[in-house]
């Protein structure tokens, strides 16, 4: 049975021969593991992250890797053209992706990307925001939640200060950005459900 994996990290190419589930997963793993390792490297460079217990570092990364990658890959979603460019370079229209069974999740990903893009974040703002996505004290199973919370508050203060410095006349920009955090949680849940159904299928 041939399958498609409508994920920007998939090596899916246009007009290629039908591939088995095993082939699709093997292709996917070539980009998946390096992407996760990059997220871990990013986390290690967040000041204070390595002071957390190792179990909390793992818990935060396990819970937040998808959300970090979603932020990182948001620019692959072409909101105007309603298309998604995969890391392989191939570009797919929304209807093509919907035909692969990615309707609701994909639409929500486009909505998120559009909202994030509208904030015109600088690289520095995006970096602190991404750190904040990862360092969330309310993830379940934290060993030392207060230490994570301290780091989270430090990041929130740093982000707020930077955004106010960069946009002193737009006080809503910081609030709008923080509102993207629950959006990411929702996308994370939807993605987990999708992944589960893919495996079950």
């Amino acid at each position: 049975r041939s399958v498609h994996l409508a994920c920007p990290m998939s090596a899916l190419s246009r007009g290629g021969p039908p591939r088995s589930v095993q082939e699709v997963w093997e292709d996917f793993s070539l980009s998946f593991t390096p992407a996760v390792r990059e997220v871990v490297e990013f986390a290690r460079h967040i000041p204070g992250f390595q002071d957390l217990t190792q179990q909390d570092q793992v818990t935060l990364l396990k819970a937040g890797t998808f959300e970090v990658l979603m932020v990182r890959f948001a620019s692959l979603f072409d909101v105007r053209e309603r298309s998604l460019r995969f890391l392989s370079g191939a570009s797919y229209s929304l209807p093509e992706l919907q035909a692969m069974g990615m309707g609701e999740l994909l639409g929500s990903m486009f909505d998120f990307s559009e909202k994030l893009a509208s904030l015109n974040l600088s690289q520095e703002e995006l970096g602190i925001f991404t750190a904040l996505v990862l360092v969330s004290a309310d993830r379940s199973g934290m060993e030392n939640a207060s230490l994570v919370e301290q780091l989270q508050e430090t990041l929130i203060r740093a982000l707020r200060s930077l955004i106010l410095k960069n946009s002193p006349n737009d006080i809503s920009r910081f609030t709008k950005l923080l509102l993207r955090l629950p959006d990411l949680r929702t996308l994370n849940s939807m993605h987990s459900e999708k992944l589960l159904s893919f495996r079950v299928d």
Binding site: W25, T33, V36, R37, V40, V58, L61, K62, F66
Partner: peptide
């Protein structure tokens, strides 16, 4: 999440990356 090529799950990949144990061998 899982890496079918190496039979590693997301948590294993994270733990290995955190410990730097990916560094001593090629992917």
């Amino acid at each position: 999440f899982a890496d079918p090529a190496s039979n590693l799950g997301l948590e294993d990949i994270i733990r290995k990356a955190l410990m730097g144990s990916f560094d001593d061998k090629p992917d």
